[in-house]
Protein backbone atom coordinates (compact mmCIF):
# COMPACT_ATOMS: atom_id res chain seq x y z
CA UNK A 1 0.00 0.00 0.00
CA UNK A 2 2.97 2.28 0.59
CA UNK A 3 3.88 2.40 -3.08
CA UNK A 4 0.28 3.16 -3.96
CA UNK A 5 0.20 6.03 -1.48
CA UNK A 6 3.40 7.39 -2.97
CA UNK A 7 2.02 7.20 -6.52
CA UNK A 8 -1.19 8.87 -5.38
CA UNK A 9 0.71 11.68 -3.68
CA UNK A 10 3.12 12.07 -6.59
CA UNK A 11 0.28 12.41 -9.05
CA UNK A 12 -1.50 14.96 -6.88
CA UNK A 13 1.70 16.97 -6.42
CA UNK A 14 2.53 16.79 -10.12
CA UNK A 15 -0.90 18.05 -11.02
CA UNK A 16 -0.41 21.01 -8.68
CA UNK A 17 3.15 21.74 -9.63
CA UNK A 18 3.27 21.29 -13.38
CA UNK A 19 -0.26 21.44 -14.66
CA UNK A 20 -1.78 24.26 -12.68
CA UNK A 21 -3.72 21.81 -10.53
CA UNK A 22 -7.43 22.19 -10.70
CA UNK A 23 -7.20 25.43 -12.69
CA UNK A 24 -7.18 23.75 -16.12
CA UNK A 25 -10.39 21.72 -15.95
CA UNK A 26 -12.08 24.39 -13.85
CA UNK A 27 -11.30 27.15 -16.34
CA UNK A 28 -12.41 24.96 -19.23
CA UNK A 29 -15.65 24.09 -17.46
CA UNK A 30 -16.30 27.74 -16.71
CA UNK A 31 -15.60 28.76 -20.31
CA UNK A 32 -17.90 26.07 -21.67
CA UNK A 33 -20.85 27.03 -19.49
CA UNK A 34 -20.27 30.70 -20.30
CA UNK A 35 -20.35 30.03 -24.02
CA UNK A 36 -23.47 27.84 -24.04
CA UNK A 37 -25.99 30.63 -23.26
CA UNK A 38 -24.25 32.86 -25.80
CA UNK A 39 -24.92 30.23 -28.44
CA UNK A 40 -28.39 29.27 -27.29
CA UNK A 41 -29.78 32.65 -26.31
CA UNK A 42 -30.61 34.22 -22.97
CA UNK A 43 -34.25 33.02 -22.64
CA UNK A 44 -34.54 32.13 -18.90
CA UNK A 45 -37.04 29.28 -19.32
CA UNK A 46 -34.87 27.53 -21.89
CA UNK A 47 -31.67 27.98 -19.87
CA UNK A 48 -33.37 26.69 -16.75
CA UNK A 49 -34.51 23.57 -18.59
CA UNK A 50 -31.17 22.81 -20.22
CA UNK A 51 -29.03 23.84 -17.23
CA UNK A 52 -28.62 20.40 -15.61
CA UNK A 53 -27.81 18.80 -18.96
CA UNK A 54 -25.27 21.45 -19.94
CA UNK A 55 -23.51 21.01 -16.59
CA UNK A 56 -23.07 17.27 -17.14
CA UNK A 57 -21.94 17.74 -20.71
CA UNK A 58 -19.46 20.52 -19.94
CA UNK A 59 -18.02 18.57 -17.00
CA UNK A 60 -17.43 15.59 -19.30
CA UNK A 61 -15.54 17.76 -21.78
CA UNK A 62 -13.40 19.33 -19.08
CA UNK A 63 -12.35 15.89 -17.85
CA UNK A 64 -11.23 14.98 -21.37
CA UNK A 65 -9.20 18.14 -21.58
CA UNK A 66 -6.32 16.86 -19.45
CA UNK A 67 -6.56 13.16 -20.33
CA UNK A 68 -3.52 13.08 -22.60
CA UNK A 69 -1.10 14.14 -19.85
CA UNK A 70 -1.71 11.44 -17.28
CA UNK A 71 -0.18 8.51 -19.16
CA UNK A 72 1.35 10.39 -22.08
CA UNK A 73 4.17 11.84 -19.98
CA UNK A 74 4.89 8.50 -18.29
CA UNK A 75 5.02 6.80 -21.65
CA UNK A 76 7.42 9.39 -23.01
CA UNK A 77 9.95 9.38 -20.15
CA UNK A 78 9.91 5.67 -19.34
CA UNK A 79 8.11 5.92 -16.00
CA UNK A 80 5.47 3.53 -17.32
CA UNK A 81 8.08 0.81 -17.69
CA UNK A 82 9.28 1.38 -14.15
CA UNK A 83 5.72 1.03 -12.91
CA UNK A 84 5.42 -2.38 -14.50
CA UNK A 85 8.83 -3.43 -13.18
CA UNK A 86 8.16 -2.15 -9.66
CA UNK A 87 6.44 -5.35 -8.53
CA UNK A 88 3.33 -3.54 -7.36
CA UNK A 89 0.06 -4.78 -8.91
CA UNK A 90 -0.32 -2.63 -12.04
CA UNK A 91 -4.11 -2.36 -11.69
CA UNK A 92 -3.82 -0.91 -8.18
CA UNK A 93 -1.03 1.36 -9.28
CA UNK A 94 -2.96 2.92 -12.15
CA UNK A 95 -6.03 3.27 -9.96
CA UNK A 96 -3.97 5.21 -7.42
CA UNK A 97 -2.53 7.29 -10.21
CA UNK A 98 -5.84 8.19 -11.83
CA UNK A 99 -7.45 8.91 -8.47
CA UNK A 100 -4.48 11.04 -7.45
CA UNK A 101 -4.91 13.20 -10.48
CA UNK A 102 -8.70 13.26 -10.15
CA UNK A 103 -8.58 14.36 -6.52
CA UNK A 104 -6.07 17.09 -7.31
CA UNK A 105 -7.68 18.46 -10.45
CA UNK A 106 -11.36 17.58 -10.63
CA UNK A 107 -12.67 18.62 -7.21
CA UNK A 108 -13.95 21.99 -8.47
CA UNK A 109 -16.32 20.36 -10.97
CA UNK A 110 -19.25 19.83 -8.55
CA UNK A 111 -18.74 23.33 -7.14
CA UNK A 112 -18.73 24.99 -10.54
CA UNK A 113 -21.58 22.72 -11.59
CA UNK A 114 -23.61 23.97 -8.65
CA UNK A 115 -22.81 27.63 -9.28
CA UNK A 116 -23.31 27.28 -13.02
CA UNK A 117 -26.70 25.64 -12.56
CA UNK A 118 -27.76 28.48 -10.26
CA UNK A 119 -26.59 30.99 -12.87
CA UNK A 120 -28.78 29.23 -15.42
CA UNK A 121 -31.73 29.82 -13.07
CA UNK A 122 -32.04 26.21 -11.96
CA UNK A 123 -33.76 25.82 -8.53
CA UNK A 124 -31.34 25.27 -5.65
CA UNK A 125 -32.49 21.75 -4.87
CA UNK A 126 -32.08 20.62 -8.46
CA UNK A 127 -28.68 22.27 -8.68
CA UNK A 128 -27.60 20.37 -5.56
CA UNK A 129 -28.74 17.06 -7.02
CA UNK A 130 -26.84 17.88 -10.20
CA UNK A 131 -23.69 18.71 -8.24
CA UNK A 132 -23.96 15.47 -6.28
CA UNK A 133 -24.35 13.56 -9.54
CA UNK A 134 -21.20 15.23 -10.89
CA UNK A 135 -19.34 14.21 -7.75
CA UNK A 136 -20.56 10.64 -8.19
CA UNK A 137 -19.53 10.70 -11.85
CA UNK A 138 -15.94 11.83 -11.30
CA UNK A 139 -14.43 8.35 -10.73
CA UNK A 140 -16.05 6.98 -13.89
CA UNK A 141 -15.18 10.00 -16.01
CA UNK A 142 -11.55 10.17 -14.90
CA UNK A 143 -10.98 6.41 -15.23
CA UNK A 144 -12.47 6.30 -18.72
CA UNK A 145 -10.38 9.31 -19.72
CA UNK A 146 -7.38 7.53 -18.22
CA UNK A 147 -8.13 4.37 -20.19
CA UNK A 148 -8.34 6.28 -23.46
CA UNK A 149 -5.22 8.20 -22.48
CA UNK A 150 -3.31 5.00 -21.77
CA UNK A 151 -4.34 3.49 -25.12
CA UNK A 152 -3.25 6.59 -27.00
CA UNK A 153 -0.21 7.43 -24.85
CA UNK A 154 2.63 8.96 -26.77
CA UNK A 155 0.78 9.29 -30.06
CA UNK A 156 1.21 12.73 -31.54
CA UNK A 157 -1.90 14.89 -31.24
CA UNK A 158 -3.48 12.21 -29.09
CA UNK A 159 -6.12 14.60 -27.74
CA UNK A 160 -8.49 14.06 -30.65
CA UNK A 161 -8.03 10.30 -30.57
CA UNK A 162 -8.67 10.23 -26.82
CA UNK A 163 -11.87 12.21 -27.26
CA UNK A 164 -13.06 9.85 -30.00
CA UNK A 165 -12.33 6.75 -27.89
CA UNK A 166 -13.60 8.10 -24.58
CA UNK A 167 -16.86 9.75 -25.60
CA UNK A 168 -18.76 6.54 -26.48
CA UNK A 169 -17.63 5.07 -23.17
CA UNK A 170 -18.84 8.09 -21.27
CA UNK A 171 -22.35 7.83 -22.68
CA UNK A 172 -23.85 5.87 -19.74
CA UNK A 173 -22.37 8.02 -17.00
CA UNK A 174 -23.40 11.18 -18.85
CA UNK A 175 -26.95 9.89 -19.23
CA UNK A 176 -27.28 9.05 -15.55
CA UNK A 177 -25.45 12.06 -14.13
CA UNK A 178 -27.18 14.62 -16.31
CA UNK A 179 -30.40 12.62 -15.96
CA UNK A 180 -30.29 13.05 -12.19
CA UNK A 181 -30.34 16.83 -12.57
CA UNK A 182 -32.95 16.69 -15.31
CA UNK A 183 -35.36 14.47 -13.44
CA UNK A 184 -34.88 16.53 -10.27
CA UNK A 185 -35.83 19.58 -12.32
CA UNK A 186 -38.95 17.88 -13.61
CA UNK A 187 -39.88 16.77 -10.08
CA UNK A 188 -39.51 13.18 -11.18
CA UNK A 189 -38.80 10.58 -8.51
CA UNK A 190 -36.25 9.03 -10.85
CA UNK A 191 -33.69 11.61 -9.68
CA UNK A 192 -32.59 9.33 -6.87
CA UNK A 193 -32.51 6.33 -9.18
CA UNK A 194 -30.34 8.28 -11.64
CA UNK A 195 -28.03 9.32 -8.85
CA UNK A 196 -27.66 5.74 -7.68
CA UNK A 197 -27.09 4.54 -11.23
CA UNK A 198 -24.34 7.15 -11.65
CA UNK A 199 -22.74 5.79 -8.54
CA UNK A 200 -23.18 2.24 -9.81
CA UNK A 201 -21.46 3.08 -13.10
CA UNK A 202 -18.66 4.75 -11.18
CA UNK A 203 -18.18 1.71 -8.95
CA UNK A 204 -18.31 -0.68 -11.89
CA UNK A 205 -15.78 1.43 -13.77
CA UNK A 206 -13.54 1.52 -10.70
CA UNK A 207 -13.65 -2.26 -10.52
CA UNK A 208 -12.97 -2.97 -14.20
CA UNK A 209 -11.10 -0.08 -15.83
CA UNK A 210 -7.81 -0.40 -13.87
CA UNK A 211 -7.25 -3.79 -15.53
CA UNK A 212 -7.94 -2.21 -18.91
CA UNK A 213 -5.54 0.65 -18.22
CA UNK A 214 -2.83 -1.72 -17.01
CA UNK A 215 -3.32 -3.87 -20.12
CA UNK A 216 -3.22 -0.80 -22.33
CA UNK A 217 0.05 0.41 -20.79
CA UNK A 218 1.61 -3.00 -21.22
CA UNK A 219 0.44 -3.27 -24.82
CA UNK A 220 1.88 0.13 -25.66
CA UNK A 221 5.28 -0.87 -24.39
CA UNK A 222 5.25 -3.50 -27.12
Amino acid sequence: MNALGAVFAREARLAWAGGGGAAGPAAFFLAAITLAPLAIGPAPDLLMAIGPGIMGFAALLSVLQSADRLFGDDHADGTAELYLLSGATPAWLVLAKVMGQAVATLWPLPVIGLLGALMYGVPVETALVGALALLAAIPALSLIAGFAGALAAGIRRSGLLIALIATPMMVPVLIFAAGAGRSAFEGDERAVANLLLTLAVSLGTTALTPFGIAGAIRSRLG
Binding site: F147, L151, I165, P168, M169, V171, P172, I175, F176, G179, L197, V201, G204, L208, G212, G215, A216, R218, S219, R220, G222
Partner: peptide
Protein backbone atom coordinates in the same frame (compact mmCIF):
# COMPACT_ATOMS: atom_id res chain seq x y z
CA UNK B 1 -2.87 -5.34 -32.59
CA UNK B 2 -2.66 -5.56 -28.80
CA UNK B 3 -3.95 -2.09 -28.06
CA UNK B 4 -6.76 -2.51 -30.57
CA UNK B 5 -7.73 -5.82 -28.97
CA UNK B 6 -8.02 -4.21 -25.55
CA UNK B 7 -10.14 -1.39 -26.94
CA UNK B 8 -12.41 -3.77 -28.85
CA UNK B 9 -13.00 -5.91 -25.75
CA UNK B 10 -13.70 -2.87 -23.59
CA UNK B 11 -16.01 -1.66 -26.34
CA UNK B 12 -18.31 -4.64 -26.12
CA UNK B 13 -18.81 -4.25 -22.36
CA UNK B 14 -19.43 -0.59 -23.00
CA UNK B 15 -21.97 -1.23 -25.75
CA UNK B 16 -24.06 -3.43 -23.47
CA UNK B 17 -24.17 -0.70 -20.82
CA UNK B 18 -24.85 1.93 -23.48
CA UNK B 19 -27.78 -0.15 -24.68
CA UNK B 20 -29.39 -0.22 -21.24
CA UNK B 21 -28.61 3.37 -20.37
CA UNK B 22 -29.95 4.68 -23.65
CA UNK B 23 -33.11 2.59 -23.20
CA UNK B 24 -33.52 4.24 -19.85
CA UNK B 25 -32.93 7.61 -21.48
Amino acid sequence: ARTGAILAMAGIINLVIVKFSVDWW
